[in-house]
Design a protein around this nucleic acid. Structure first.
Lengths: 123, 123
DNA sequence: TCAAGAAGTTACCAAACAGTAACTACCAAT
DNA sequence: ATTGGTAGTTACTGTTTGGTAACTTCTTGA
């Protein structure tokens, strides 16, 4: 057997995790998917994020082709809308699986309930 | 609808990604799963990792209950064996899905071939 | 008794990442 | 001309993470 050499930086797992590493990225993708799609709305849901970091993470996600950024100049004040690209949407499905694994394997029962309560559109 | 507040540090996605964030953790889990289970063997497959960092990451994985560490004093020189716990093994399955997503969505064709070549036990 | 192999530990340094606070740009209504 | 709202940017700081190089421990065979 060959003794192949491994390095995260050339591995699809490392690259994929790189897309969503950054303290807020999975949440941002989640919120955008659920039409919390404006800069200010995102800030309201993540009160602990700063504008600077929110901007950075949105730019990262945009550069990686996971979200689209649309400026509407028509209205006042000028508004910016974010939406998932197809790639971003397929990544969201993967993140759902991560969510499920984590919910079962890491959280205790009270946390599990809280996590489920935070899901948008669940009844 | 309540305007719930979100933070990665209390989210199962963030916690799960936290388990495998660290430049080498997905690879370490992968190699241990395939019986590359000794400190020295792991180093041979990851020539760019330092002993210090390898130790750190192994300790993290152990503390999170993803791997077991067994010291065999019987033989000479003293040997340390690592193995996946059940939890570690179930996480590996999740990592496989991340691998598949990344292979399809990030890598170009030559990288895809290389990634597949690096898989252990594939034919 | 000492050399050698496995598996670390320690001290120290550099880069990446996250955070705060203050400042900017644009535009429309008054 | 000034205010108010959205969406940023900039300068600066602190924390976390990863990296190098040298040192340590344990053991046994020569």
């Amino acid at each position: 057997m060959k003794t192949n050499e491994y390095d995260t930086y050339s591995c699809p797992v490392g690259k994929t995790i790189g897309l969503i590493s950054g303290r807020w990225k999975p949440i941002i993708l989640y919120l955008i998917q659920h039409d919390i799609n404006r800069f200010g709305l995102l800030q309201k849901r993540m009160p602990k994020i700063s504008r600077k970091v929110l901007t950075e993470q949105l730019r990262d996600l945009e550069n990686q082709g996971l979200i689209d950024r649309e400026v509407r100049v028509s209205s006042y004040p000028q508004e910016v809308f974010y939406s998932l690209t197809e790639k971003g949407s397929s990544l969201r499905m993967l993140i759902d699986q991560i969510f499920n694994w984590g919910t079962v394997n890491i959280l205790d029962e009270p946390s599990r309930k809280m996590a489920v309560d935070l899901l948008i559109d669940h009844h």
